[in-house]
């Protein structure tokens, strides 16, 4: 169950309460998130939509512990991350979050295999254990035969698959995807979405995804819209129906 009214139970995997984020630019304060609430259960697949500049990336960064909110709390699997120190938060990210960004963000001088192995270098796993995990992750994304290719030798869709393999290799609690298909053609985008759906359906992953593409968003279980700093359910095209949906 996904809720945005702040009334979710304490069993939610991700619980966000009264989240505020204010940027100051040139002395001027920009309120991006204003008392946002969210509850996401394990195994949910949520899409966030909203116009450019509405704060989707900001929200994802806060959920992923990359940035700290101005007010409010985020609790993941019982841990409140909003009170963690910098190094605690870094450790928490390594353990719990898999990131998939729009730009593929692979290290160009490392092979697919080495890129996927990066998160495991931070664990205590031995070389052979790491190898097993990396090969499994690459097999899941269908790139077992491209392991030793460098990013420049891969297509955009393949690069994004490597990013997904890197995100799942350490078996994180949830995945955050910021416009995962934003740079891809329709066919590659469909393949990536099929892969993400499979991660949810077959492997029980929890996925939170930002997209501005309704076709992509339609593949999620739930689509939420970011409007005026809070999340609302239903169609964004009509303010009335959003409010009606929210009230219902």
């Amino acid at each position: 169950m996904v809720r945005v009214d702040g009334n979710g139970g304490s069993q939610s995997l991700i619980r966000v309460r009264g989240l505020n984020k204010t940027y100051s630019r040139g002395g001027e304060k920009i309120q991006v998130l204003q008392g946002l609430n969210l509850d996401v259960d394990k195994g949910d697949f949520v899409a966030f939509m909203g116009p450019s500049g509405s704060g989707k990336t900001t929200l994802l960064n806060l959920l992923g512990g990359l940035d700290v909110p101005s007010a409010g709390s985020i609790t993941v699997a019982g841990d409140e991350i909003t009170h963690m120190s910098g190094s605690k938060l870094t450790q928490w990210r390594a353990r719990h979050v898999g990131f998939i960004f729009q730009m593929y963000n692979l290290i160009p001088v490392l092979t697919a295999y080495q890129n996927v192995e990066l998160p495991l270098l931070l664990t205590k796993l031995s070389g052979s254990e790491r190898r097993k995990h990396v090969e499994t992750a690459l097999a899941v994304v269908g790139l077992a035969d491209r392991m030793h290719h460098y990013p420049r030798q891969l297509s955009g869709g393949q690069e994004q698959r490597v990013t997904i393999a890197r995100a799942i290799v350490s078996d994180p609690t949830f995945l955050l995807c910021d416009e995962p298909t934003g740079d891809l053609d329709r066919k590659s985008a469909d393949e990536i979405m099929a892969l993400i759906e499979e991660l949810v359906a077959k492997y029980g992953k929890t996925v939170l995804m930002v997209t501005h593409d309704p076709v992509v968003a339609a593949r999620a279980h739930t689509t939420l819209h970011l409007e005026k700093g809070v999340l609302v359910e239903g169609k964004a095209s009509s303010r009335q129906s959003v409010l009606a949906g929210g009230a219902a």
Partner: peptide
Amino acid sequence: ISELGVLKAIGFTD
């Protein structure tokens, strides 16, 4: 910078 940012995001410490 962006690569170093990615490393930090996936858990590399400062």
